Amino acid sequence: MQEVSLSSAMVQAKCPRCRKGNLFNVSVFSFLKLTEINGKCPDCGATITPEPDFFYGAMYISYAFSVALMVTVFIVLNFFFEKAPVSSYVLTVLAGNILLMPLMLRYSKVLYLYGLGKLKYDPKALEK
């Protein structure tokens, strides 16, 4: 059986224990069911949500993503335009947040689960 690297499993939003099962019911890039995550891994059966409010801490990571997007927009607009109107900053940040919302929400949960979750990689998890 081929082992999946940690970075590949995180990018593909796979289970931290087996790195095969999907964390989300729909695609990571989908606007449908943004906040729903599987309770158990469909492949190894590991409990992904250890407690009911576990993913509230992922809001801080999502906030950091939004701040990083805002800073990036400010730097890019200041680089290309000498005196851009405030409305262009606001509209660009708003559009970027709306378009990237599924990625920011979902990857904040993935990072939080991999960083603070108790699930550790077990290459033999599917055999159990």
Score class of each variant (00 low, 15 high):
residue 68 A to G: 06
residue 17 R to I: 00
residue 61 I to P: 06
residue 34 L to F: 07
residue 5 S to P: 04
residue 88 S to Q: 15
residue 25 N to G: 14
residue 49 T to M: 09
residue 64 A to S: 10
residue 97 N to P: 01
residue 48 I to H: 03
residue 73 V to C: 08
residue 98 I to M: 14
residue 72 T to V: 12
residue 38 N to G: 12
residue 47 T to H: 02
residue 95 A to H: 01
residue 79 F to K: 10
residue 59 M to V: 00
residue 97 N to V: 11
residue 37 I to R: 05
residue 96 G to E: 01
residue 3 E to M: 04
residue 96 G to I: 00
residue 39 G to P: 14
residue 77 L to T: 09
residue 51 E to D: 06
residue 81 F to D: 13
residue 40 K to D: 10
residue 34 L to P: 13
residue 38 N to S: 09
residue 4 V to Q: 08
residue 13 A to V: 04
residue 86 V to Y: 11
residue 6 L to G: 06
residue 88 S to L: 15
residue 47 T to E: 02
residue 17 R to K: 05
residue 59 M to L: 01
residue 55 F to V: 05
residue 81 F to N: 14
residue 27 S to K: 14
residue 93 V to T: 12
residue 11 V to D: 14
residue 80 F to A: 11
residue 97 N to Q: 14
residue 97 N to F: 12
residue 67 V to Y: 04
residue 24 F to P: 06
residue 47 T to N: 00
residue 99 L to T: 10
residue 58 A to W: 06
residue 14 K to M: 02
residue 71 V to N: 14
residue 63 Y to S: 05
residue 33 K to W: 14
residue 43 D to F: 00
residue 64 A to V: 02
residue 26 V to N: 15
residue 12 Q to S: 13
residue 74 F to C: 14
residue 34 L to I: 10
residue 49 T to Y: 11
residue 49 T to R: 12
residue 83 K to N: 13
residue 91 L to K: 12
residue 70 M to W: 05
residue 42 P to C: 06
residue 27 S to C: 13
residue 12 Q to N: 14
residue 52 P to F: 05
residue 62 S to E: 09
residue 22 N to F: 10
residue 15 C to S: 07
residue 69 L to V: 09
residue 69 L to I: 11
residue 75 I to V: 15
residue 74 F to H: 10
residue 78 N to A: 04
residue 80 F to K: 08
residue 99 L to W: 05
residue 36 E to L: 11
residue 20 K to C: 00
residue 78 N to L: 02
residue 57 G to K: 04
residue 54 F to V: 04
residue 78 N to F: 02
residue 94 L to S: 12
residue 14 K to E: 02
residue 9 A to P: 08
residue 57 G to I: 02
residue 73 V to I: 09
residue 56 Y to E: 11
residue 92 T to L: 00
residue 9 A to D: 08
residue 18 C to G: 03
residue 30 S to F: 07
residue 45 G to I: 02
residue 15 C to D: 03
residue 84 A to N: 10
residue 35 T to M: 15
residue 78 N to S: 03
residue 44 C to H: 01
residue 23 L to N: 06
residue 41 C to H: 00
residue 6 L to Q: 10
residue 9 A to I: 03
residue 54 F to W: 01
residue 60 Y to N: 08
residue 8 S to Y: 08
residue 48 I to G: 06
residue 95 A to P: 01
residue 17 R to P: 00
residue 14 K to P: 01
residue 44 C to P: 00
residue 10 M to Q: 10
residue 72 T to K: 07
residue 37 I to A: 08
residue 52 P to G: 01
residue 31 F to D: 15
residue 79 F to M: 12
residue 45 G to Q: 00
residue 97 N to C: 13
residue 53 D to T: 09
residue 6 L to R: 13
residue 65 F to H: 08
residue 10 M to S: 00
residue 78 N to G: 10
residue 60 Y to H: 06
residue 98 I to E: 10
residue 62 S to A: 13
residue 20 K to V: 03
residue 56 Y to I: 09
residue 90 V to M: 05
residue 95 A to Y: 01
residue 8 S to N: 13
residue 53 D to F: 09
residue 32 L to C: 15
residue 19 R to S: 01
residue 44 C to M: 02
